[in-house]
Every structure is written in structure tokens, then in C-alpha cells.
Design a binder for these strands. Sequence first.
DNA 1: TTGTATGCGTTATCAC
DNA 2: GTGATAACGCATACAA
Lengths: 364, 364
Amino acid sequence: MPTIRDVARLAGVAPITVSRVINNSGYFTDETRQRVEEAIHTLGYMPNSLARSLRSHKTRTLALVLTDITNPFWTTVARGVEDAASDAGFSVILCNTDESDIEQERYLRIILEKQVDGVLLVPSGEPHEPVSTIRSQNVPVVVLDRRVSSDLDVDSVRSDSVQGAYELVRLLIKLGHRRIAALTGPQDVSTAVDRVSGYRQALHEAGLDWEMVLYGEYDLASGFRLANIALENEGRPTSDNHDLHDLTSGFDLTSQALLANPRPTAFFAANNFLAIGALRALRAHNLQVPEQVALVGFDDLPESLVVDPFLTVAAQPAYEMGYKATELLMARLTGRAPENCQEIILPTQLIVRRSSGDPVNSSL
Amino acid sequence: MPTIRDVARLAGVAPITVSRVINNSGYFTDETRQRVEEAIHTLGYMPNSLARSLRSHKTRTLALVLTDITNPFWTTVARGVEDAASDAGFSVILCNTDESDIEQERYLRIILEKQVDGVLLVPSGEPHEPVSTIRSQNVPVVVLDRRVSSDLDVDSVRSDSVQGAYELVRLLIKLGHRRIAALTGPQDVSTAVDRVSGYRQALHEAGLDWEMVLYGEYDLASGFRLANIALENEGRPTSDNHDLHDLTSGFDLTSQALLANPRPTAFFAANNFLAIGALRALRAHNLQVPEQVALVGFDDLPESLVVDPFLTVAAQPAYEMGYKATELLMARLTGRAPENCQEIILPTQLIVRRSSGDPVNSSL
DNA sequence: TTGTATGCGTTATCAC
DNA sequence: GTGATAACGCATACAA
């Protein structure tokens, strides 16, 4: 492989002059440029990024650390990240953590050793540790999707989980539902908690005190399992309270609900996988949606994947989230960002489809 | 940031000794290791991959160049790639080309300058040029998904498009269909062509001469558009042949079909997006699937995304494809691969669901 | 406008 | 077992 010296020799100039032409920096005549470019062309010369980066302390590479690219929400975010990065001449290293702190740490180590210019991080679990690991190498971070406590002082971009959940549940209430179950993600993930807050806010505002919140993972199996728990609770004697509690990690059922022990008439699922898992559980119980049970969920599915859009959802602007976060990150690392850290909260969009059903009979 | 020299100084050894400990290469006593590791720990030292790679000519980084991560098929492939790479301590740079040769060339340049150890390439269009670009830098390539002419002599991993299409169309024929339309991708993409081959093979074997092949893009809009063309051809005078030809790029309709001018009773879509686009077109025509028209397609959708699996498909082992291709690539670049180039063809799996329907009345 | 000297942080090579 | 030296390929600092 030819190096910059070979080019310099052929063009009859010093290596630094070749460097100047390549980077379009400093001064050189048009004739010099010509000669250098010609030499580059005839040799098929390609600059070595490693040497360049070692010297310049810039790699034009970002890392995207997320939980699982397989979730279409993250896929879309990733595409936004990649487009924004690519538009600015940056590359993206993809890292799937599967919500594992171990994997996250392993990856952070690797990408920091690779001297990435910036990190887009969806923290698996608690954000302080990973953020400070990254910060310790003076690398800018933008936290994606998850809320961070204000004392962390880090840029972040996410969508409005509270508002999205609030709107979904308010819709259910407006449609006549009085017993709405919430299926959500892990309690240490801010979106899971925030979406429960929105749920509670809507209940509270409507003066409803029947609530049922089930925590699990953000996956299909949890959606199925939690919906089953919610359904099968029906008819149980209230004395089963403790058993029930033991059966399910993070089961949180108010005593009012247990006393009455009726089935919920509507479900709010806090992400796309939970919604689909729940839907399957409902079908397994021979419950028609929306005729017998209503269902709403967070995250829309890409229109290209859905034959017949059915679920009423709070759609997050996933692509925009990825794109904006990346722009912010790049602004930060080129010093173009505002001094103080940014917290960008994007609105969700309520999309009403059939799964929420028509207004229900209040006798339900 | 501390460097290897700082560590060496603190441990009272030479930098090269630190290097030996880090890389576990050469000889050193256990006591030396202890001292070095202690120094590394107290300084919080992290090796600089750039310097390391510049010297060692290894980056432990692969590039994955594909068309669009947003297609769940590619998402799954990408996850397989990432897992295989990660298992071996490699990172992956993600590149979306959107089937654009320009983008592909731009990306190849960037990743080659970054000195990636290997490339997983889904060529946009003609594969010779990108492959030889990569080869010119002595970087190993594995071509994914697309067939390459044997004179290219490159490792490749794909699934059996001909067989998958053949099985799908044979199923339709067995179910009684005699007029089956094929909706496929661009004519310069091997999968689009191969799937038509499989289609024709099944028709031929059954002695059917009615065929209709429509070429387009591998996207939703094409699925919708091509299905509409196939449906609206009904009743057109055959003299419209040329107009029709002009209307659609790559329209390829045998004269038999035009003479008869009947609607197809079944559709074969050559990928997931085409299938969904077609399904929408069928609905727009108030045609019930499968009661009035049957539909089968290539690529399965992830079970976690589909509420109610409906489409009969030839499923590709996407994850496995990514994983195996990456293993092959890494074997190649560590010299562990067989001398001659590998062409791995993975079987597809026929998954029969409702969209193909029950046996139809032969009077259709 | 161009060039010289030097160093980025690590490892290959060879000597001890 | 360990170390000195040089080199990977380029860009910064400064000189001309």
C-alpha cells in the first residue's frame, strides 16, 4: 500500500504538502494540488485513518450502544443515527447490550480504546456508572430514550413517556373503561416507570382508584405472562393476595382491585413487544379485541411491516430521536453545542386504531 | 490520559514489558505481571487501539455494508453478524447503502481508510466493482445474500432463493392455482432473478404456461404498484401490450397471459415488503385473501412483531446467515479458512399459513 | 507557499 | 525474562 511519502515523492513535494492538499488545509497553489492529486490517482493512494487519527485525536467514529437492534423501535433509531452520522462523514459502531451491565461495560471498554469521538448510549439499568466511565476518557455522551437524574448533567434525548401513556389511558377512560391494567417493563428502566406515572395520572384525573400495575421485561414473553396474570386473577379469593404477590416479581395490585377482583376491561402495554404478547394472551383466553377487551400500547410498528394496522398506540418519533441525538452529539464534540447540557423531550403521537374499540357500555 | 510509558514508569519496567503483559505474549514472571497490572489499575490505563492497530496492522473491526437495516430481514442478519463478531472480540461498523452505488463506494472508501480487518458486503447492484475495490486493499470480503458469478472467486453466504421460490409456487399449484403472478425486485439483483427462476421452474414442472413476472423495487410501494398492475390488466385489450410495457419498467408478460387477460388467482411476492404491499393492493381491490386470491412471499417476519401470523412464506435463516458469514470472514482473515473460496447456500423453510388458502376450485 | 523536525502510542525486531 | 531502538503513517509546530 502506498503511503503519503510515496505520493509526495511522485509529486515532487514534501509529505506535509500532500497532507495539506488532502485535508484542504493551509496554503498551496492550484498547480501543486494538480500534481498531488495526479500522484494520488496514479498510485491509488488511500490515507490511513489510523495514523491520521492517532495524530489528530479524531476518529470520525461514533458508538451506538443500545439494548437490541432487533426491536424495530431501535432499528429505526439506529437508522436515524446512521443517517445523521453519515451526513457528517462519521461512521457508527453498533453495540447490542441486551440490557446486560456486563456486556455494556465490555463494549464501553472496547469503543473507548478505539477512541470513538462520541457515544450514543441507551443505558442498561443505572446510567451513572456507564456515563462516568465514558466521561473519564473525556468522550462526549448523549443518553438516548431514558431519563437521567438531573445531577448527572448529561445531554439526553427521549420521548415523552408520561404524556404518551397519559393520553392512551385517558382515551381508554373516555371510551368508558374503569378497570385498566398496565403492563410495563423493568422497574429500573425509566421509561417503564414513567409510563406507569402517565397511567396513574390519567386514572387520578378521572377519579378512578382501580389500578393494576404489572412489571416485567420489555419482551413478548412478559407481555403474555403479565396479561395472563391480570386475567387469571379473576375470581381469586382476596386471601390469595400474598400468594399472588409472591408469584410475580414486582406485582403491584391495590387492595381495591383485589377486593373487587374483577377482570380489567382494558390493557395498557408499555411497549410494542408487551402489546403483542398481551394480545396473544387475550386471544388464548378467547377474548376478542376490542369487542371484549381493549388494548393500547407504546411504540408504533413500521407501516411496512404491518399488514393491517390495528393497535392504538403512542408512537415515538424514533428516527427523529436517533437523528437529533446524533446531531447534538456531533455539535457537542465540535464545540458547537450550547454550554449547558440539553434535555430534549420529543412528543409522542396518539394514533387511534381499532384495538381501543368504540365507547363501551358503562355496565362492564 | 495515561500511556503505556506511564504504566511502565510506575511499575518500574520498560513499556514493552507492559505491552507483553497486556497482550499476554512473550515471557515475563508472575511478579512482573502483578506489578504491571497494579500500575494499570491505579492509573486507570486503557490501551489506545489506534496506536496498537497502526503498529500491528489489525483493527479487530469489521464493516457490514447492507442496503437498509430497517428491513427486519437485514436487522436479523445484522444481529447475527454483531453476535459472531462480538463473540470473537470484534466490533462492527454499520453502513446502509440504500442500494445506491454512490453510497456504497463512499462507504467502502471510509471503511478501507479505517483499515477494517474484513468486510461483509451486500452488493448494491453489480458485485465485481465493490469486491475488487475491497480486494485492492488486501481486505477479505464475504458477499452476503447475493449470488456472485463464479469467476469472481469470492466467499459468499446466501439462502436458496431458487428452491424457496420453487416450493412456494409448487404449493400454490398444488392448491389448484393455474394463474400465478410473480412480483419481484430489481433485475440486477440476483435474488430477484433467482426467485423468478424458482417460480418458472415450478410452473414448468407442472406444465403451466401462463406466467406473469413484474419487476420493481424491493419495497412496499412496488408491491402495491405491481399488484395493481397485475390486477388491472384484467379486461385490457391485448393491443395495450406496448403501453403496458412502457408504463412499467421491466414489465414482462407472456403473450398467452395477455391474450387471455384474466386475473391471476395467486401472487408470489419475492420479499417481505413486496408481500405486504401486494396484500394492501388486494385489499384495496376488495379481494379477500385467501378466499379470493392467494398470496405467498419470501422472508418471514419476526414472530415478536406479528400479532397474527398470516402469510405463507419461504423463511430465510437470517440470523444464521449473518452469524455464519461473519465466522467465515474471521476464519479467512486469521488464515483458518479453507484455501479455496466458499459458497454457502442455506436452505429456506416453507412455512404454510393461511394466506395461501385451501385447495381452490379448478374452475377459477 | 512550502519544508523540516518531531511526536502521536504502540509493537516488531533484535540484543542482552 | 527483559530492554533499547526503530517504525507504523500521518499531522502539529515552527521555520524558511
